[in-house]
Design a protein around this nucleic acid. Sequence first.
DNA 1: GCTATCCTGTGATATTTGTCACGAAGGTCG
DNA 2: CGACCTTCGTGACAAATATCACAGGATAGC
Lengths: 208, 208
Amino acid sequence: MENYRHLFPDLEEGLQREMQEKGRVLAVKAGQVLIQSGQNIRNTMIVLDGLIKLYRENDEGNEFFMYHLHPGDGCALSLICDRSFKLSSVTAKAVADSVLLVVPLEHTENWMRQYRTWYHFVVGTYRRRYEELLETIDHIAFQNMDERLEFYLRRHRQALNTNVLEITNTQIAQELNSSREVISRLMKKLSEDGKVRLLKNGIEILKL
Amino acid sequence: MENYRHLFPDLEEGLQREMQEKGRVLAVKAGQVLIQSGQNIRNTMIVLDGLIKLYRENDEGNEFFMYHLHPGDGCALSLICDRSFKLSSVTAKAVADSVLLVVPLEHTENWMRQYRTWYHFVVGTYRRRYEELLETIDHIAFQNMDERLEFYLRRHRQALNTNVLEITNTQIAQELNSSREVISRLMKKLSEDGKVRLLKNGIEILKL
DNA sequence: GCTATCCTGTGATATTTGTCACGAAGGTCG
DNA sequence: CGACCTTCGTGACAAATATCACAGGATAGC
């Protein structure tokens, strides 16, 4: 945890110490599922390193990409659980090898009243995620697949900080709840427009 | 405010007094717009009476129904604003004549640390709205228009607590970001299936 | 009663997206 | 090398939804 203090410049000294004492550092492998849909939440999770992806899932096994969590981000759903240990309705999966700080919920509720900076952290987290969800709704509600695909690519380029995304059309189709063929065709169009280049095992983003 | 105490059985005595002192009671007419997209938020709003509808809007004037606020509900976006006075990205409109409690943000941040019950109130509010948004995403992402329409009708019957909705197809189409004709056709189907009855100025929900 | 307006119903058609079928390219492993 | 797997591209088709055009009914205001 000491190595990660730079991620939380706004959190006060005492709080940082408590995070170190009460929290457990957990390393996870790329691809590992952290929270399964329908599982109880008993811990707050904060990303220290790596990258986490959050999905919404439904009964029939369809999934839908919500947003990424970067180092310094907390998982909104697990930050405030109101003691009721509600069921989680999303799936969190590590995109890259990642490191998490796991803190039992009983501590974080105390921090909420004890540390003004923690309150700001939680409030900021929730608000950002809420607005990110709103943005997602905008896209599904108002836009066509081609625009949504471009947005998806931009988002992923930014999150992974690379112009080359090693990802299959099948995977994209799943996360946008579309079908491989549709993505394939749209991708061809993007390529013809010079917006991306199709590599043999991924996509290079040229200008989006 | 005294008349509305029963709405907040969980809020502690001192807090209720402060709400009464610091808050301003505001009556609004049905149809009135409370928060316009892009407007600054400087006050927390809590619904005391009536019914408020929240919409997401985009640049081209399309709107999309998000959820209702009932008496006792706080407006999530305005509850925690993190002092940054961010722009609001939604529109709130009174469905019926309504009464609101308006509290300047500087007070509510203090309450957050001072009153444990306020903290729970805010946390609960945010979480519920967050999950409501998730549910909305499920519907747009995974379901067809007919299912979404049924869900819309159920939601409105529940919110308005009546089986007769005085609402036009045009209005529904807007809120689902569809078109009047589509709603008209689907409504006919619902009627043929005996799920609704089409009245001359509204819809009676029979079994949904 | 006349006109303007709003809401509705409906056919025809276009667009978007999903589904099915199939073949090609590349990779892995025995 | 050959069997197998995954991925991709693509044509043909189906389904869902949007759009256009138009007509009828209700209602408010004059």
